[in-house]
Design a protein around this nucleic acid. Structure first.
Length: 282
DNA sequence: CTAGGATCCTGTCAGC
DNA sequence: TGCTGACAGGATCCTA
C-alpha cells in the first residue's frame, strides 16, 4: 500500500517523535521481516530520516542505516504519551501494541516504542552499512523522484516501454520512483489517459500532463497528511478514509466521475485493480 | 533488453 | 455456518 506520499508522511511524523532517542532494545518477532544483526542497533539512536521512493531510511548514531520497505501492508506506529500511526491504514492504528501483526519493535530509553506491523510479511527492515546502501539493487535501480524528473526525461522513459500499458509503466519503480496503484490511477485520471493505453501511444503533451497529474495528487496527499490514524478514525469516532481527501477514481467504482458525472468503472490493467472514467479517459 | 505471469503471505469478502 | 476462490495501495523472479 504505502506509496511515496504515505512514506513521506511517516518520515515527517517520526521526525519529531523518535529523533535522537536512544534505542535500548530491538524485538524481532518475525525473522523474515528483519535483515542483519539486530544487536548493533541497541544503544544507538536515529539521527536522520530520509526517503527514497517508497523506502524509508533511518540513519543511526553508529553510522548504520535501517532501510524499511512497507510493501503492501506495512505500517509504523509510535506509542508514547502521544500516538502516531501511519502507513497501511487498518484497525492496528488504534489497537493495543504489540498486536498479532507486529513483526518488529523498538524500545526507546524514555519508555516509548516504535512498532513495525505488516500483515502480509512482504515488507522488511534491513540493517545496512553505507556500502550496502550504495550497492542495494532496489535503491540503485530507482527512477528519479517525480519532482526531480524533467518532462522530457519522463517522456523518453515512457517511450522505452512502447508496448506496455501506460499504467504498468508508471508503476515500474525503475521508470519513476514512488508511484503505486492509487496514484497511478489518480494521475492517469487527471491527465485524462485511459490506463490500458500503450505507453507508445502517449504523446509528449500527454506525458507532460501525466507527470504533472502525478505530482499534483501526490502533493495533495502529502499536504493533507497522508494516511494516518487521524483520518482513519474521525473526530466523531466513525471510520474514515484518507482517500476522501484526494481520490477522484480510486475505490470509487459505481460512483460519479467528479468531472463529467458518468459512472466510474473498475477493471484490471497490468494485473492490478484499475479505476477510471471511460468518458474522461481515452 | 522488454513484457507478462507466478509468487511471497495473511486476511476478508462475495458467492455458493 | 462452512467452504472456495478472488482479490489486496508491492516488487522480484522466471520465462518467452
Amino acid at each position: 500500500m504505502p506509496e511515496l506520499p504515505e512514506v513521506e508522511t511517516i518520515k515527517r511524523g517520526l521526525q519529531g517523535l523518535i529523533l535522537n532517542k536512544k534505542i535500548v532494545q530491538v524485538h524481532v518477532l518475525c525473522e523474515k521481516s528483519w535483515r542483519g544483526p539486530a544487536q548493533l542497533v541497541e544503544g544507538q539512536s536515529v539521527i536522520e530520516l530520509e526517503r527514497r521512493g517508497k523506502a524509508l531510511l533511518m540513519k543511526l548514531s553508529n553510522g548504520l542505516w535501517i532501510m524499511t520497505h512497507l510493501r503492501m501492508t506495512g505500517q509504523l506506529i509510535y506509542v508514547g504519551d502521544e500516538r502516531y500511526a501511519a502507513g497501511h491504514p487498518d484497525a492496528n492504528f488504534t489497537a493495543e501494541m504489540p498486536s498479532r501483526h507486529t513483526r518488529i519493535y523498538f524500545d526507546f530509553e524514555d519508555g516509548t516504542h516504535l512498532y513495525f506491523n505488516d500483515l502480509r510479511k512482504f515488507g522488511y527492515m534491513s540493517l545496512m552499512e553505507d556500502e550496502d546502501l550504495a550497492q542495494d539493487a532496489f535503491l540503485n535501480s530507482l527512477g528519479p523522484e517525480p519532482w526531480v524528473m524533467s518532462e522530457d526525461d519522463f517522456y523518453q522513459r515512457l517511450q522505452r516501454h512502447k508496448s506496455a500499458p501506460i499504467k504498468a509503466v508508471i508503476l515500474d519503480q525503475k521508470v519513476i520512483a514512488g508511484v503505486g496503484n492509487i496514484y497511478a490511477d489518480e494521475g492517469l485520471f487527471l491527465a485524462k489517459i485511459y490506463p490500458g493505453r500503450l505507453a507508445g501511444e502517449v504523446s509528449r503533451r500527454e506525458a507532460s500532463a501525466l507527470l504533472k497529474g502525478l505530482r499534483e495528487v501526490m502533493q495533495r496527499s502529502i499536504d493533507s497528511g497522508g494516511s494516518t490514524m487521524k483520518d482513519y478514525v474521525r473526530a466523531d469516532g466513525t471510520k474514515g478514509s484518507y482517500l476522501e481527501k484526494f481520490a477522484n477514481v480510486f475505490r470509487r467504482e459505481g460512483k460519479c466521475c467528479p468531472n463529467c458525472g458518468s459512472e466510474i468503472k473498475k477493471t484490471r490493467v497490468a494485473g492490478r485493480g484499475t479505476h477510471f472514467c471511460a468518458e474522461c479517459q481515452k
